[in-house]
Design a protein around this nucleic acid. Structure first.
Length: 564
RNA sequence: UGGGGCAUGGUGCAAUGGCAGCACAGCGGACUUUGAAUCCGUUGAUCCAGGUUCGAAUCCUGGUGCCCCGGCCA
């Protein structure tokens, strides 16, 4: 193994692989990501994608993308498209190894014939209810099917007629002949094939019998030469059946390894529950920026790099985990901090009139997009216009400031970022006593944000020239659920009771500096002192921009207020 | 004793018989033309009870708790 092939991070899976490589069970590593095309990919799938592609990369091996399309009733082409888009966006490449379990239907059928000839499978005429009855319970053994001892010839004939479409759905199944008394229910003569007179998105009406997951997955892995078939914990009980299929047939034997799926606080991760959120209108769609789907996160402003870093950091184990959303948010902030251009946007505007600034005067400041690299003088810049009337953030002014508040207040002086120092001289209120306007004076000597006398000015505010401001809609997001664990409900409760009614806050009259008119989908911005934002790829229009808040900045001041 | 699996700070992951460590969160401070970032410091953990051992998170025995399995879904 060359230097760069040493796994970046070891875990119990890489330990197993190392053993296999040492003892010669395998000489290469070949993984696969096997989504069922019945929904959109979410952050939990991203963990699996990063794991499978990452391990193959670390060991100099390959990863296949294989759609597990064995249930035509729930699967659609729309999903196979979106899944590929999402994986590519995440940054992984399956090259020419795009496969479908349905590619192997003919081969799987032949293997089924072999199983019958081996006396290891039989056609069963029991219906669903009868089968359930025969299966027994968790603590009691099942009973053999009355059709279990059919002759090989009869089974062959029946199975071929199943394939030929002679029978109704539910009337017959092909079952493995294993052990109805097994304590593992998966081994109680499990169904291998069922009849489904359904149109398949790839094979059309060619087939009316479809293989079950356990059979199809094991054979697909074997056919593709997958060495390590990584799946989630709930399939642990299925491994003996997986092994049985490959052993009985005597074909290439992949090793199934199970790990704990990802859970995140303040959200839900199952396709069914995500679908419920969409159907009941709690979110706009699968790619609503509040959704933990990859398409939603992309629209929200998550970067592939942040998600990959996250997958790397959380690690992989067999213990059930519930990762803190704050960790996800941390990696996003970290990534965006390094790449987002800084601009000024006033979310909740309060007008400021600078009395001693001539009303017909205008000037522009050349402001760096990356102020922290100012010293290096290597940051690109943009022109920011300034004039007599500006907007500042309403929360940056308090008439009666508490201690430690060092923003604007009557008589106080603050710095307008990159512009001038201003001092508040007058507060204008409406009939309700609400502040509607501030009158200030500026110090012409402080142009650029620093005064010759180097006097200390504690507060530095962002601002936008009123005359030049462009309006925009801002969408501020919070978690979908109020509790870390949405399922933490009283006995008669439902996780939907914990939905966050304020997960979306829409601001319709935000004031942006003019350059933002040229913003393009896919660009990342830091609205200074607010958070990271990106143009919404769905609802934003020329002249009517809509920005999503990807994630707010850490707000120490707000935290101080909270703790009081 | 149906079967399978898992227990390490608040959360996630390490330590593979030899000083329990990392990240996030928390707390305190420095710096600051972003109350951001950065920097420095810091609180906090081996499910329980026995046993083996010079030495146990790790090995053994017995408990306890939690998760998964009775689809012709995956």
């Amino acid at each position: 193994m060359s230097e760069e092939n040493i796994p970046s991070r070891s875990n119990f899976i890489t330990e197993i692989i190392d053993q296999h490589l040492e003892n010669g069970r395998f000489t290469n590593v070949h993984t696969r990501f096997p989504p069922e095309p019945n929904g959109y990919l979410h952050i939990g799938h991203a963990k699996s994608i990063c794991l499978n592609f990452g391990i193959a990369r670390d060991y100099g091996g390959l990863t296949n993308l294989r759609f597990d399309d064995t249930n035509p009733i729930t699967e659609e082409v729309e999903y196979v498209e979106s899944i590929q888009d999402d994986i590519r966006w995440l940054g992984f490449d399956w090259e020419d190894r795009l496969y479908f379990a349905s590619d192997y239907f003919a081969q799987m059928y032949d293997y089924a014939l072999q199983l019958i000839k081996l006396g290891k499978a039989f056609v069963c005429d029991l219906n669903v209810d009868e089968l359930r009855h025969y299966r027994g319970t968790l603590t009691e053994p099942g009973k053999n099917s009355p059709y279990r001892e059919r002759s090989i010839e009869e089974n062959l004939d029946l199975f071929q007629r199943m394939k030929a479409g002679e029978f109704q759905e539910g009337s017959h199944t092909l079952r493995a002949k294993i052990d109805m008394a097994s304590p593992n229910l998966n081994l109680r003569d499990p169904v291998l094939y069922r009849i489904l007179h359904a149109h398949h998105h790839r094979t059309g009406d060619e087939w009316c019998i479809y293989p079950m997951y356990d059979y199809a997955h094991a054979l697909s892995d074997s056919i593709e030469g997958i060495t390590h078939s990584i799946c989630t914990l709930e399939f642990e009980d299925h491994r003996p059946l997986y092994d049985w299929c490959l052993q009985t047939l005597g074909i290439f034997h992949s090793q199934q390894i199970e790990f704990a799926r990802l859970n995140l606080t303040h959200t839900v991760m199952s396709k069914r529950k995500l679908l419920q959120l969409v159907r009941e209108g709690h979110v706009s769609s699968w790619n609503d920026p509040r959704m933990p789907t990859l398409s939603g996160m992309r629209r929200r402003g998550y970067t592939p790099e942040a998600i990959r870093t996250f997958a790397d950091i959380i690690g992989v184990a067999k213990a059930h985990s519930n990762v803190d959303m704050e960790l996800l948010e941390h990696v996003l902030r970290d990534d965006l901090n390094a790449r987002a251009r800084r601009v000024m946007v006033v979310v909740e505007p309060l007008k400021v009139i600078i009395g001693n600034y001539p009303s017909d005067k205008e000037e522009t400041f050349d402001v760096p997009y990356f102020p922290s690299s100012r010293a290096l003088d290597d940051s690109p810049t943009r022109q920011v216009p300034f004039s007599r009337e500006i907007f500042i953030e309403r929360s940056d002014f308090m008439e009666e400031p508490p201690s430690k508040f060092y923003r604007l207040a009557p008589g106080r002086e603050v710095r307008l970022m990159n512009a001038y120092y201003i001092t508040c001289t007058d507060v204008v209120k409406d009939a309700n006593g609400e502040v509607v306007e501030l009158h200030c004076t500026y110090d012409p000597e402080s142009r650029g944000g620093m005064s010759p006398d180097e006097r200390k000015v504690r507060g530095t505010l962002h601002w936008v020239s009123a005359r030049h401001a462009i309006n925009a809609e801002l969408r501020l997001y919070d978690t979908l659920f109020t509790l870390p664990n949405p399922f933490d409900v009283p006995d008669d409760g439902d996780f939907m009771d914990n939905i966050n009614p304020n997960s979306l806050q829409v601001v319709t009259d935000a004031k942006l500096e003019p350059v933002l008119a040229e913003a393009v989908v896919g660009e990342f911005f830091q609205f200074m002192r607010q958070g990271y934002f990106c143009l919404d790829s769905v609802d934003s229009q020329a002249g009517a921009p809509v920005f999503n808040r990807s994630i707010s900045l850490v707000d120490t001041w707000a935290k101080m207020q909270q703790n009081r």
